Structure formats: C-alpha cells, structure tokens
Amino acid sequence: MSDQSNDSSDSIRLSKRMTELGMCSRREADEYIERGWVKVDGVVVNVLGSRVRPGQTVTLEAPAQAAQAARVTILLNKPVSYVSAQAEKGYKPASVLIVPENHWDGDLSGQRFHPQHLRGLAPAGRLDIDSVGLLVLTQDGRVAKTLIGENSNVEKEYLVRVSGRLSDEGLRLLNHGLELDGEALRPAQVVWQNADQLRFILKEGKKRQIRRMCEMVGLQVVGLKRIRIGNVRLGQLPTGKWRYLASNETFD
C-alpha cells in the first residue's frame, strides 16, 4: 500500500512512466494503480500521482495482464460517408458498423463477438469522410500508443487516384520538401502505381494530409484508400466489414 513518493528531480509520475514503457495508456495506468495492480521494485503502489525514478522496475500484476489480454482491436474496411470518430454534420461514426452482421466470415482470429468489445472502443488514427480502407479501432492503449503516439513511427500505405499533371519536381516535393501548418513534413515514399494512381507511404497523419499535399503540387485527389498500417494489411476484407486483430498480428 505504499505511495512510493519520490522527490528526486529526475523522478516522473508513475502513470507517465508506464506509458513510456509501452505498458498501457495513461487512463489505463491510473486505473491499474488505483486497483493495486502495479508494483514498483516489487512493492504495490496504489496512490495516484506517485512518482518513480527511470531506473526503477515497474511491473503489472496478473489481473492487469488479464484485463489487457481481454481487450480487442478491430480492423474495419471503412466505406465512404462515415467519419472515423464522433458523429458530425449528419455523418455516422464508423463504429456503428461494428455489429455482428458485419463481422467478416473470413476472420481467422478465433474471436467471437461480445457486446463488451464495444466498450471503450476508439479509433487509433483517422480516415476522412471521403476516404476508404483500413481503419483501426481498439480498446487497448498499447495499440493506440503504437499507432498514434507522439513518437509513432508506423508506416501507413495508401493508393491515391488523382487528376491533373504532376511534374518531376512535384513528385520530388511529395517525397520530401512540403510544409503543412507551418511544419515541415517528414519524408514520404510516393511513386506512380499506374497511369492515374499514386502509392503513398507515410509515417505521420496530419488532417487531410495527402489531399493537401496533392493540392500543393497541382493534383486533385479523386479517390483515396488505405491498404496497410505497419505490418497489417487490408487484404481481402470487404468494404463495410470488420475483423479482429489476431493474436499473432502486430503493427510494428
């Protein structure tokens, strides 16, 4: 029942340290601490706001590990006219598609749908209303941190149908050299897939980033489809259908 308080200048909040270690989200960390499911150097810490030094060992008790194992991650092939998160301007959130009748019969995860899987399910990344393809919704803070955390380095791959004329210099700028919102974009990989379609591979996801990048080099996006996030591909998942992330699949 120790609070493991530590006033050392290099100490940090235990919940923050847990997220840095990739153990869980901040919200989950606070829950585990309150429940007495966290140990620091072998001693239970159950007081919110407790601090630890970087060298101390943080571990999760069995109930926390079981809670994490029960959390699901869902892969959806999002259709046009659905928003990624909260409903807006009359458009429905993509989460309304996570119902038993839309569960893909090609799902090999072995998971069976349970209403509990909808609790706390949230998108880990966005696809705008007019874009389609792979959208990840998860209950697991570790997955969310991997995909959208501040230091995320996971690739996202898109097929982008465009109209307009793209010069060699424009293609070079798409790969590296553009700015959005006053910030230089990270290097991308952009190549022609066919006569009217580009393949984009990005490691960031600013709002409507690809569409805005294309506009800056004189292109208009006609269609945009996300086909991969990290090691996970959209594959044969039909539009509007969803499946569970299998236990042997990881994004990084």
Rank of each mutant, 00 (worst) to 15 (best):
E183P: 01
E157P: 08
L135W: 13
E215F: 10
A69V: 01
V47A: 11
Q193F: 04
G55K: 01
G218Q: 11
K39C: 13
E150W: 08
I98Y: 05
G36I: 08
P54H: 04
V38I: 06
L180Y: 05
H103T: 11
V232H: 07
Q139F: 14
R186H: 04
A66C: 01
L21A: 14
R226Y: 02
V40P: 00
A184S: 07
L173F: 00
L202E: 15
K206S: 10
A195N: 12
D181V: 00
L135K: 08
L224E: 08
A246T: 05
E183F: 01
Y32A: 01
S152F: 12
D3T: 07
V44A: 09
K156M: 13
K207P: 06
R208H: 15
G182Q: 03
N6E: 15
G170T: 00
C214Q: 12
A66N: 01
L219Y: 13
P100Q: 02
R53H: 04
V96N: 03
Q189M: 05
R208T: 05
D168F: 00
Q4D: 10
T239C: 08
L14H: 00
N153P: 04
Q139A: 09
N194H: 11
Q68M: 00
D128W: 03
M1D: 14
Y91F: 15
Y158H: 10
A67Q: 02
M18N: 13
V43K: 06
D168H: 00
A62G: 02
W37K: 01
G141T: 04
L178S: 00
L135P: 09
Q189A: 04
